[in-house]
Write a protein that binds this DNA or RNA. Sequence first.
RNA 1: GUGGAUGUAGCUCAGGUGGUAGAGCACUGGAUUGUGGUUCCAGCGGUCGUGGGUUCAAAUCCCAUCAUCCACCCCA
Length: 421
Amino acid sequence: MKQKIQPVRGMRDILPEDAARIALIEDAFRDVLIRYSYEEIRLPIVEPKNLFDRGLGESTDAVAKEMYSFLDRDNSELALRPEGTASCARAIINHSMAHEDKPRLWYAGPMFRHERPQAGRHRQFQQVGAEAFGYSGPAIDFELVHVVTEVFERLGLLDSVTLLINNIGDAAARSQFRDALVEYLNPFSDDLDTDSKQRLISNPLRILDSKNETTRCILKEAPRLKDFVSEDSTKRFETVLEMLDAAQISHEIADQLVRGFDYYTDTVFEWVTDRIGAQDAICAGGRYDGLIELLGGRPTSGIGFAAGIDRIALLHSATQEELEYRSTDVYLIALGEEQRSYLSEIANRIRQGTNLRVREHTEPGRMGAKMRWADKSGAIWAVIAGESEESERNVSIKWLRSDREQMRVPLCGMLEVLEAA
RNA sequence: GUGGAUGUAGCUCAGGUGGUAGAGCACUGGAUUGUGGUUCCAGCGGUCGUGGGUUCAAAUCCCAUCAUCCACCCCA
């Protein structure tokens, strides 16, 4: 036997039963988004690398260390997209959509980050995202949170997730805060944990997230981001919170919540869960009022979220009852090859007249083996056709999941029996 | 990128101190030649992740390497 070919590290096959769960989750997002009047956009998986350099920030981990980038045949730098927002923003700029339309878009598809694989973290992973461009009022912030809440409710996950929300102000406020934070922390530099010491240079805002106790202690007296945020922004954020309260959407204000990409401004939010391991963020988003301009478009406000479908699927399988998965409703068995064409006639009749999923047994073998296949397929019925059924133009219907007695009905009455169940 | 654990039959896993590989489930056949899911009997199936080394002898000891899982980091 030849050596087996392994899939690429961090890339995985999603087998039918898991695929069904993923489809269930994607369908929930799609259905809710469509009812909120969001439109689907299909975006390329490969983009110019500098779209992400500029859009997400060159110092972010996703760009600096985790990008799947490569040279095209003409030596231009390309990258597999690590997220969807930058592509979406590029698209609305390229098609001049922002001016007249105020587009509300959603997308679904694979994203790529070259990270070390772990529970809930793969190098190719699935996201559903939505973005709204040109809306600056607080109601749109509320609406997107509401959309996601509705999806989680529909999937029965609302009890296992927590919504964290914060206001991080605009880029200027954040940069002032960053300076103040660094200035405050510098004297304590030696007392910080090693990670935080590193981040003092690379990404100071992340220090706020530290789990180290001494670091946390030092942070108690540190400057607060909210003291640097403009009055307008604070007011706006308060309105968003009021709307959430009025809609009884429970949320926690998380001072330490900062997002991983540079483009975020003002409202940011994230749903976390404690049921799926260390990678606990299942959906996150926020405003990005500077992104369109950064990418060469006219100043346009934006807001969106991205949901990690693989992680939501993990959560779903951890909390929900087992999916009742089966591929087949009706299993058709011909006793001998002579009944093959009669069997096809039966199959066509069921497929055309109902939504039932029909499988014909195609292999030779004895009756017992065929019945075993019928059972394993998960089908509710075995429909059997032998010589006598064919000559009398009827079929035998056997219930595989109940004690109901096998019955023989004329072909024209078959659908009635199947649909009655 | 760093650390820990694990790789033996399709799957889940046994195989103290080296002696030439096992169970359960699954699969195939039979008991039951037009009836599955229960039972009984029989059978198929493994260069023990890969490559080196030590040894008369390696699944077992040593080295390297790959992969998976979990955590750090980061993030959806």
